[in-house]
Design a protein around this nucleic acid. Structure first.
Length: 110
DNA sequence: ATTCTGACA
DNA sequence: TGTCAGGA
């Protein structure tokens, strides 16, 4: 076919971490104020991609993180607490993958 | 209209 | 933590 297939076609989740949504679109998707999305980035809760011009581009993964932030805020956690939760979740995911690796299979059934 | 940074309540 | 000011 065309000799110019997507450069990152090797990684299955590449598109999930590839920034595509403008901040206004992302804010609409998660029902949050545009200004707050910028605040959450400033506080280190997430780091959306940027265009060469500096405009933020949120990926599907970022959208999911924003949903998590929204829920955790509703639970009464502050920004610092949420930052910790996100860090821990990332580590749990890392360990889960490692465990599945050592197991040869993930079967989270029990 | 849309987004960005910095300041401040 | 969230909102406003001011500019590109």
């Amino acid at each position: 076919m065309s000799p110019s297939a997507p450069q990152r076609g090797q990684r299955p989740h590449a598109h999930r971490t590839h920034g595509v949504f403008a901040i206004s679109v992302a804010a609409d998707m998660v029902r949050m104020e545009v200004q707050n999305l910028r605040v959450y980035e400033r506080r280190g809760l997430l780091t959306p991609d940027r265009t060469s011009g500096g405009t933020r581009l949120y990926s599907q993964a970022d959208i999911e993180v924003l949903h998590r932030i929204r829920d955790l805020l509703a639970d009464g956690l502050n920004i610092a607490g949420i930052a910790r939760v996100l860090e821990l979740e990332a580590e749990v995911e890392r360990l889960r993958a490692r465990l599945a690796e050592a197991d040869g299979n993930a079967a989270p059934g029990r």
